[in-house]
């Protein structure tokens, strides 16, 4: 069993994007979370990036609201 390595702010910075995207490996997540417990600056950075990402997620449009491509739709229906 390998315990998680201590990381510094510079290493933490490299892991943050994938972490916020929920794309990091378990061990990277653990290392980062451990760092965040003791580093307010990186903690605030993660909170900020999460907040920004959340706002962008909110831009996703409603699929059902768009009834634009009537010609294309008719073409496909008639196939």
């Amino acid at each position: 069993m390998k315990t998680n390595r201590e990381i510094d702010c510079r290493e933490a910075l490299k892991l943050i994007a994938a972490y916020v995207d929920q794309q990091s490996t378990k061990s990277d997540s653990k290392s980062l979370e451990k760092h965040l417990e003791s580093c307010r600056h990186c903690f605030d950075r993660v909170e900020f990036e999460k907040m920004l990402k959340n706002r962008l997620k909110g831009l996703k449009l409603d699929t059902s609201s768009s009834e634009m491509s009537t010609e294309v739709r008719r073409f496909l229906e008639d196939l």
Binding site: K60, L61, T63, S66, M68, S69, V72
Partner: peptide, 23 residues
């Protein structure tokens, strides 16, 4: 088709350009 329209509109932001792109 609805997915294509949605992503197209997010990319182009103009319904007319989106319709062209989807076609």
């Amino acid at each position: 088709l609805g997915d294509l329209e949605r992503v197209g509109l997010e990319l182009c932001r103009s319904p007319q350009q989106t319709e062209e792109l989807v076609a």
